[in-house]
Design a protein around this nucleic acid. Structure first.
Length: 417
RNA sequence: GGAGAGGUGGCCGAGUAUGGCUUAAGGCGUACGCCUGCUAAGCGUAUGAGAUUCACGUCUCCGAGGGUUCAAAUCCCUCCCUCUCCGCCA
C-alpha cells in the first residue's frame, strides 16, 4: 500500500512506477474518489458536531425536568442526514481500499528499468564452475529411485517431491544447518503455522494479485502459505513496537505451497519447479533509515552460506519489469547446476520499505517521542532447498558413482549407484 | 463439537446491572524537569491512535460488523479471537 499523501501529491511518480513495473495504475480513479470522500467527510463531521451539542443540551434539560422536544426533533433530523451521507461514504471507503491494494510498490532509484528478467543486471559472480572429464548427470539421474516420482504422483499428483534414504536425510540435514547458521548470526528462530488467513495474505501482498496461485481451503477460508514470509511478517501485524527493539530479525523453516498454474513445460523436470518445496526464510523489521544497508547485509550473509556450501553463484539485481508487486528492490541468487548446465534461482532478497508495513499496520514508536511510524520490512530466502540439493549433488558427482558434499554438511563421500 | 468466562489506549485495569457532566478513572511504562555526593527511591509536568484542515479546531475509534435510540463502551443480533471445563483426536 502506498502513502495517501504520495498518491495525492505525486501521482506522476505513481504512474511512472506502475508503467516501469508493468502493473495497472488506477490513480485517476483514486484521485476522484479521494476528492469525493473529503467533501462528504466535511459535511458529515459538521452534522455530527451539531448532534453532539444537541445531545448535551437534551441531557441537561432533562436533568432539570424541562422539555427537550425541540432539541430531540432537530437531532433526529440531523441524524437522518448523517445516515444518508455515511452510507455513501462507506461505499466510497470500501472502493478506495480496494483500489489502494492495486498500486504496486515504487522501485528504488537504483533499480534498472526494464521489461522483464532479461533486463536484470548481474552484479556479482563468485566461485568457479566445476569441470568434469565425463558428462555430468542431472540430479534426477543421480537420485534414481531415491527421487520417487511414482510414489509422489500416487500420493498427491504431478510435481510433488518424495525423497527416500539419504536424499531425504540430506534435505533434513540442510534445513538444520541453515537454521543453525542463521541463529548463530543473531536471528530469532520461529516455528509458524503453515496456513494463513485472508488478512495475513493481504498484509504481505499475496492478495489480491497472487490469490489464484495459492492453494485455498474454502471451508475455512485459509490459504497454504506460498512462502514463510507470510507468517513471519504477520507476527507483527497491527503492532507498534518501541524503536529500541529494531531491528527484529527472524528466521523460520516452512514448506512453501504453490499451484504454479500455467507454468508447466520448461524447467519442470526433477526438483526444479514443484508444488511444495522446503525453504528457510529470513524476515527483518528495520528502522526506515537503515533498510538499505540491511538489504546489503542480508545479501552478504547469504553469500557466506553459499561459500560454505561451495556452490558457484551469481547475484543479479532485478529490473523493474521483473520486480515483484510488493518489492522496492530485489536481489536474486542463482547457483550453477553442473548436470543441467544452467543457473538455478535459490534465493531472493527484497526490501519492501513501508509497503507491507502499511498494509499490515506494523509501526514503531520513535525513541525521541512523536507519532508512530511505519517500519521497513525485508525478507530473503536462506535458502530454498530443492534446487540447493540439485546443485550440490550435480556439482559434487564423480564418474565412479560417488560424490562429495561440502564439509559443513558431511565429510563422508556418498555412494549413489 | 458442547458449556461457561472474557476481549477497553504501548501494557495493566475501572466503567456495562440503572444508556446522557466518561470529553474513558487509576496504575505501569515512557519523555522532560526538580531533588539527592552516585545509584535507587521521591516530587512535578507531559504522554493513545486514525481521519480531516494552511491553521485553530473538528470528527471517529472500547475485538469486527450490523441494529435499536434524540443519544451506545453500556441494550439487541451475527461473526472472530483468548481462557477454563467437557467431548474427540495425533
Amino acid at each position: 500500500m502506498l502513502d495517501r499523501g504520495l498518491l495525492r501529491n505525486e501521482p506522476d511518480r505513481v504512474r511512472e512506477a506502475s508503467l516501469n513495473k508493468g502493473e495497472p495504475c488506477p490513480i485517476d480513479r483514486w484521485l476522484s474518489l479521494d476528492r469525493k470522500r473529503r467533501d462528504l467527510l466535511g459535511r458529515t463531521e459538521t452534522l455530527r458536531r451539531r448532534r453532539n451539542e444537541l445531545s448535551l443540551e437534551v441531557s441537561s434539560l432533562k436533568k432539570n425536568g424541562e422539555s427537550a422536544d425541540i432539541q430531540i426533533a432537530e437531532s433526529k433530523k440531523v441524524g437522518d442526514s448523517i445516515g444518508l451521507i455515511d452510507k455513501e461514504l462507506s461505499a466510497i471507503d470500501r472502493t478506495m481500499a480496494e483500489v489502494e491494494l492495486q498500486f504496486t510498490n515504487i522501485p528504488d532509484q537504483d533499480v534498472p528499468i526494464g521489461k522483464n528478467e532479461s533486463d536484470n543486471e548481474i552484479v556479482k559472480a563468485a566461485g568457479a564452475k566445476p569441470s568434469f572429464d565425463f558428462k555430468p548427470k542431472p540430479h534426477w539421474e543421480i537420485l534414481g529411485n531415491l527421487f520417487d516420482q511414482k510414489a509422489s504422483g500416487d500420493i498427491a499428483g504431478a510435481n510433488f517431491i518424495l525423497l527416500r534414504g539419504w536424499a531425504a536425510w540430506l534435505q533434513r540435514k540442510l534445513i538444520n544447518w541453515m537454521m543453525d547458521f542463521h541463529s548463530e548470526a543473531g536471528m530469532e528462530e520461529i516455528w509458524t503455522p503453515f496456513l494463513a488467513n485472508r488478512e495475513s495474505m493481504t498484509a504481505s501482498g499475496q492478495i489480491p494479485k497472487l490469490e489464484y496461485d495459492m492453494y485455498h481451503i474454502e471451508k475455512d477460508d485459509l490459504f497454504l502459505i506460498p512462502t514463510g514470509e507470510v507468517p513471519l511478517t504477520n507476527i507483527y501485524r497491527n503492532t507498534t513496537v518501541n524503536e529500541g527493539v529494531l531491528p527484529v530479525k527472524l528466521v523460520g523453516y516452512t514448506p512453501c505451497f504453490r499451484r504454479e498454474a500455467g507454468s508447466y513445460g520448461k524447467d519442470t523436470r526433477g526438483l526444479n519447479r514443484v508444488h511444495q518445496f522446503e525453504k528457510v526464510e529470513m524476515v527483518r523489521f528495520e528502522h526506515p533509515d537503515r533498510s538499505e544497508e540491511a538489504l546489503e547485509e542480508m545479501v552478504s550473509h547469504v553469500e557466506k552460506m553459499l561459500g560454505l556450501l561451495e556452490l558457484p553463484y551469481r547475484i543479479s539485481i532485478l529490473s523493474t519489469g521483473d520486480l515483484s508487486f510488493a518489492a522496492a528492490k530485489c536481489y536474486d541468487f542463482e547457483v550453477w547446476s553442473a548436470g543441467q548446465e544452467k543457473w538455478l534461482e535459490v534465493s531472493s532478497i527484497s526490501n519492501f520499505r513501508d509497503f507491507q508495513s502499511r498494509r499490515g499496520n506494523i509501526r514503531y514508536k520513535p525513541a525521541g517521542g512523536g507519532k508512530p511510524l511505519f517500519v521497513h520490512t525485508l525478507n530473503g530466502s536462506g535458502l530454498a532447498l530443492p534446487r540447493i540439493i540439485a546443485a550440490l549433488i550435480e556439482n559434487g558427482q564423480t564418474e565412479d558413482g560417488k560424490f562429495t558434499l561440502p564439509s559443513v554438511i558431511s565429510t563422508k563421500p556418498v555412494i549413489y549407484s
